[in-house]
């Protein structure tokens, strides 16, 4: 503002102006719907979750057990060779104590996402899921955990067929 003009009165838009349609606004709601094909590997993985089991693929090139399963090995670039069931127990690789939910709501009881190295899969392979039945201050890297499954009737072939992973006694 210059020295000469002490005041510069203008009329700012208020949110009411927009709500009451006094200025032109355009609303467009995107109707984007998809039906992604899960494919051979993830399709079987999800079906096995419904059965209460975790299934992986073994690569004959590097002999790794890949979890989640995939039909090709990203390191060897060859098709993977066989289905292998792995345990529903594992070790916490890393975790975070989250006091903010996806919708930015503050949480008193924090969400505990963790990467779990699953027993039977190759080192560093496993699942990103949630921890439960544990106090946040007790969670630690290296903690032994076990999957807590929904009842067979509740399962639908989804990653949420596992409710969470809880500490194994003595872990």
């Amino acid at each position: 503002m210059t020295v000469k003009i002490k005041e510069w009165p203008g009329t700012a838009l208020s949110s009411r102006d927009i709500e009451e349609g006094r200025v032109l606004t355009v609303r467009h709601k995107l109707k984007a719907e998809y039906a992604w094909d899960a494919g051979v590997a993830i399709g079987r993985y999800l079906r096995e979750l419904k059965n209460g089991r975790l299934v992986a693929r073994r690569c004959g090139g590097c002999d790794r057990i890949l979890l989640p399963p995939r039909m090709f090995c990203e390191q060897c670039f060859v098709p993977t060779d066989e289905w292998v069931y792995v345990e529903d127990t594992g070790t916490v690789n890393t975790f975070s104590i989250c006091y903010v939910r996806w919708d930015v709501a503050r949480l008193k009881e924090p969400l505990l996402p963790a990467v779990i190295n699953v027993d039977g899969a190759s080192p560093g392979m496993g699942i990103l899921h949630l921890l439960g039945e544990v106090r946040p201050e007790d969670v630690h890297i290296g903690m032994r955990v076990r999957a807590v499954w929904k009842s067979p009737g509740e399962r639908e072939g989804a990653i949420t067929d596992i409710k969470y992973w809880k500490p194994v006694q003595g872990g």
């Binding site: 992604w36 094909d37 899960a38 494919g39 051979v40 590997a41 993830i42 399709g43 995939r70 039909m71 090709f72 670039f77 098709p79």
Partner: peptide
Amino acid sequence: PGLSCKEMMYEAAA
């Protein structure tokens, strides 16, 4: 319906 997008790409790449 049988293949994921990634599996389809692998087929083309191989």
